[in-house]
C-alpha cells in the first residue's frame, strides 16, 4: 500500500507515456503520429520533473526564509528537452506538408501503397 502512495505518480505518467507511444506506432495518420510523439515526450518530461520534487519544497528561486527547495537540475534538463521536442515537431510538420504535396495524402497506408506501385513499375 505504501508503494502505491509513493509511486502512483510515476505509474500514471507511464500510462500516459504508453498512450502516446501507442498513438505513434498504431495510428496511420501522420499528423496524429506527431501528436502522439508529443504526448510521449511530454509524459517523459513529467517523469523527470516528478523526480525532482522534494516534499515540502518550493520552486528553486532563492527567497528569504525558505530553506527547502525542489531540485532545479531536472527542470533545466527538461527545458532543453521541451525545446528539442518543438524543434522536432516543426520539422515533422513541414515534412508532412511536403508529403501531402507529393503523395496527395497524409495517411501512412496511402503513402505506402503509392510506394509499392512505384516499385512494381520500376521492376
Amino acid at each position: 500500500m505504501s508503494v502505491l502512495f509513493s509511486h502512483y505518480n510515476y505509474w500514471v505518467v507511464i500510462v500516459l507515456m504508453m498512450i502516446g507511444f501507442y498513438i505513434v506506432i498504431a495510428q496511420g495518420n501522420l499528423v496524429k503520429k506527431l501528436i502522439g510523439l508529443n504526448i510521449f515526450q511530454t509524459s517523459v518530461f513529467i517523469l523527470y520533473i516528478s523526480a525532482g520534487k522534494v516534499s515540502g519544497g518550493t520552486a528553486p528561486i532563492l527567497a528569504d526564509g525558505i530553506t527547502l527547495y525542489s531540485n532545479p537540475l531536472p527542470h533545466v534538463l527538461i527545458l532543453t528537452a521541451i525545446v528539442v521536442g518543438i524543434a522536432t515537431t516543426a520539422l515533422g510538420l513541414s515534412l508532412i506538408i511536403r508529403i501531402r504535396d507529393t503523395y496527395g495524402s497524409v495517411e501512412e497506408q496511402d503513402v505506402r501503397a503509392a510506394e509499392g506501385n512505384r516499385k512494381q513499375e520500376s521492376c
Binding site: A59, S70, V83
Partner: peptide
C-alpha cells in the same frame, strides 16, 4: 511540482506554438 520555469515553457510550447503549427 515546483517547476515554474518548465511550466512557463511548456505552456508557451505545448499549448501555444506547437498547436498553432499543427
Amino acid at each position: 511540482m515546483d517547476a515554474v520555469d518548465v511550466a512557463f515553457t511548456e505552456a508557451s510550447v505545448g499549448a501555444g506554438i506547437s498547436p498553432l503549427l499543427m
